[in-house]
């Protein structure tokens, strides 16, 4: 079983009448339980690749299979359901709902899965405990440090038992110590729970902590080092 399987993936945008090719034919397979980093300078196409892998966007051409399903066969609603079940997101700027408690922030993905409130909260509590925030359930994001907020976001990514966690510059807004802690958490999740982790970063020192580095440049995979 593979998490992602991409063949000849391209994505181009129209920017003020000019066609920009962000991805120019990417072949990539990421297996279950892998820990891979997509690394490249800004403008390399790594964010576009992550959006495609995360089913937030659709390729211009090429085939992308997520968990064995060809995404081109899915409509927007099915794609939303696929995101909900298969993928957990961690963003650079956390993207937590500001006036909502940690518990309800973490429970949010389950809302869209139609899980009952009591069960949602029980699972969210479990996930927060797993990231070491059992004492912060009722705190709002503004009452927590950046590192804690990112751990809440990781709990949110995990609460729905996804196959893959996509982490977009998860340490970008954190100081070294907190960044280190977040990376440690991701490593542990990968090792203990077997969740595949795809890390997008431009920092080589973060990327080396993954077991595989996929270097992207000018819309193509330049190097794939396992």
């Amino acid at each position: 079983m593979t998490a992602f399987e991409a063949a000849g993936l391209t994505r181009s945008y129209q920017l003020e009448g000019v066609t920009v090719d962000a991805l120019r034919g990417v072949d990539l397979t990421i297996g279950d339980g892998e820990f891979a980093a997509i690394i490249g300078p800004s403008g390399s196409g790594k964010s576009t690749l992550m959006h495609l892998l995360g089913c937030l966007d659709r390729p211009t051409s090429g085939v992308l299979k997520v968990g064995g399903v060809d995404v081109s066969t899915l409509d927007d609603t099915q794609l939303a359901e696929l995101r909900n079940r298969m993928i957990g997101f961690v963003f650079q700027s956390f993207h937590l709902l500001a006036r909502t408690s940690a518990l309800d922030n973490v429970a949010l993905p389950l809302v869209y899965r139609g899980v009952a409130k009591a069960e949602r909260r029980a699972k969210a509590r479990e996930a927060l405990t797993a990231v070491g925030l059992a004492h912060r359930l009722d705190h709002r994001p503004s009452q927590m440090s950046g590192g804690e907020q990112q751990r809440v976001a990781i709990a949110r990514a995990l609460v729905g038992d996804p196959q893959v966690v996509l982490a977009d510059e998860p340490t970008g807004n954190l100081d070294t110590r907190n960044g280190d802690e977040v990376m440690g958490l991701l490593e542990r999740l990968n090792a203990d729970q077997g969740v595949a982790i795809v890390l997008v970063t431009h920092e080589p020192e973060v990327a080396v902590r993954a077991r595989r580095q996929i270097h992207v440049r000018d819309g193509l995979i330049e190097r794939d080092v396992a």
Binding site: L56, T77, E81, R83, H95, P109, R156, G160
Partner: peptide
């Protein structure tokens, strides 16, 4: 807008 984007990423459908 950002909140809407986040909700969609987490699996909110258009109708949600």
């Amino acid at each position: 807008t950002k909140e809407i984007g986040l909700r969609k990423a987490l699996g909110a459908r258009q109708r949600d």
